[in-house]
């Protein structure tokens, strides 16, 4: 092999490595676009959306309640000890409410739903792919993106803000439990601070984040499941497990990256 041909091979490999993620990004974009467009094409898939709202939303209520309560309680504890150093423990209500509504509520809700519903979406669609069920939909001229992805996108957009709101409320109550009932802050002061410090802008910002996270999570999880068969790392059941893992990891990372970007825009 000459140095020249070796160099060509190196450049070609580098080109392939660069182009592959760009191609995947394009594919993800198209996939997501058609998933979104098909929510609004007739006939509406009303029952499928309700079914998915039940799966993504209603069935996540328990885990969100639990996570929200303990997050609020920890914030209450930590906040109290930090604020007492400055003699401003009366601000605990503001600290808990703002950190929950602006940041922790949307982010932790998204992370919990990724673990509960996102992984299930990737695995279910992945198994449908490897068992030719998606091919079967295509042969029946049923658009698999419309059939499988669109109802999930719609359901996630409905469920995420509601779950976030639940997380926020339960978290504030959790903060109250530790701050007022355990550590003795006056409950009237706690809730007065919550009311006075939280602006509509904070609530709207939290909901915007929840909606964007919903789109990111569903797009990644469904995309990973849908294209399981193209994975070069593993085939069959191993391919599905790898797709599910990467769906969860990528979604979590993207939620945090998106959170930073959105925070910097919304502030």
């Amino acid at each position: 092999m000459t140095i020249l041909s070796g160099g060509k091979i190196l450049v070609a490999a580098l080109g392939r490595q660069t182009l592959a993620p760009i191609r995947n990004l394009g594919k993800l974009g198209t996939f997501f676009f058609w998933g979104l467009v098909n929510i609004f094409t007739l006939p509406f898939q009303f029952y499928k959306v309700i079914e998915q709202v039940c799966f993504i939303g209603a069935k996540s209520v328990f885990v969100i309640t639990l996570t929200g309560a303990f997050t609020g309680m920890v914030l209450g504890l930590q906040g109290y000890y930090a604020l007492t150093k400055f003699g401003s423990e009366g601000m605990l209500g503001s600290a808990v409410a703002l950190s929950l509504i602006r940041e922790m509520g949307p982010v932790l809700t998204a992370v919990m739903v990724i673990g509960r519903a996102g992984s299930a979406m990737a695995a279910e669609i992945g198994i449908m792919r490897i068992s030719e069920q998606i091919d079967a939909l295509e042969t029946m001229s049923i658009d698999p993106v419309r059939f499988l992805v669109s109802p999930r996108i719609a359901a996630a957009v409905i469920s995420f803000p509601l779950l976030t709101a639940l997380f926020d409320v339960i978290g504030i109550i959790g903060g109250y439990l530790t701050g007022s009932m355990l550590l003795g802050i006056n409950s009237g002061v706690y809730f007065a601070r919550v009311e006075s410090s939280v602006l509509m802008k904070d609530v709207t910002g939290g909901f915007i984040k929840a909606v964007v996270f919903a789109l990111v999570v569903v797009a990644i999880c469904c995309f990973k499941g849908f294209y399981t068969h193209l994975s070069k790392e593993g085939f069959g059941s191993k391919g599905v497990s790898l797709s599910t893992t990467s769906a969860v990891v990528i979604s979590c990372v993207l939620v945090l990256v998106t959170d930073y970007v959105l925070t910097s825009i919304l502030l």
Binding site: E124, I127, M128, S131, E132, Q133, D135, A136, E138, T139, M140, S141, I142, F147
Partner: peptide, 30 residues
């Protein structure tokens, strides 16, 4: 494509739908 129908070697039945829903799916959807 709507003129075609395909019977897969591995059946490709929808495992989350029951038998009736599997058979009825192309009629319900199309």
């Amino acid at each position: 494509k709507q003129k075609f129908s395909y019977m897969f070697q591995g059946n490709a039945l929808f495992d989350s739908l029951n038998v009736y829903e599997n058979v009825a799916l192309p009629l319900k959807e199309k």
